[in-house]
Amino acid sequence: MFEARLLKSGQLKKILEAIKELLKEATFDCSDSGIQLQAMDDAHVSLVSMCLKSTGFDKFRCDRNLSMGINLESMVKIMKCCSNDDIMTIKAQDNADTLTIMFETKNQEKMSDYEMKLMNLDQEHLGIPETNYSCIIKMPSSEFARICRDLSQFGDSLVIACTKEGVKFSTSGDIGSANVKLSQTSTFDKEEEGVTIEMTQAVCLTFACRYLNLFCKATPLSTQVILSMSGDVPLVVEYQIEELGCIRYYLAPKIEE
């Protein structure tokens, strides 16, 4: 028996918005520690790794490990039927081929339930090596989204160059070039408003704007984003979901031929 109760269904709505354009379907691996998801986009260029801790749920019960293959488009349809502050419960029997999703309003005057068919998906899990990244940049997630959106008007690729002085985002294309440079914030009122850089070695890598913009769909989940980079390894873009867990996106760089 698997059962998880979340006090704000809006959190799961935002999570689905953050992954549905990269992944058509995904396996949700449930265990007593929580729910995990790891899946690559069709082109195998990016990977989504999500972890929701059991302790982040109002109630969480998972008697046996369960892998649920979910069509994300179907789940988005179901999630459209609830309000953000509805309480939701997801439930499945062991070896079930359906998942039940229930919504209740806070005053319990409206209850609804939906049953969704589960799928058998070929799981292709990748082993991601522990990496000590050369540069770890923490910045407001809205600022990162803004930069990706603005600069993708000019070119398909975004160069991210991180040095002690700051981080520079650059692109160029038919109409010209664009650069945005952020310095470490010296004073800020709230931690999430600042830009901080931990660096052991300068790094400069190039990434596809299209994927970066898709990762930015996670912006509503977190006020901060963490970018981790090392020379010639995939970029990690991480959004922490308050009390519940995190979503990490990995993106392979573009390299000079």
Partner: peptide, 14 residues
């Protein structure tokens, strides 16, 4: 000209 790498170049299948 830039080439897009895939994740398979970096991560192994489990």
């Amino acid at each position: 000209n830039m080439t897009q790498r895939t994740l398979m170049s970096y991560f192994n299948k489990k």
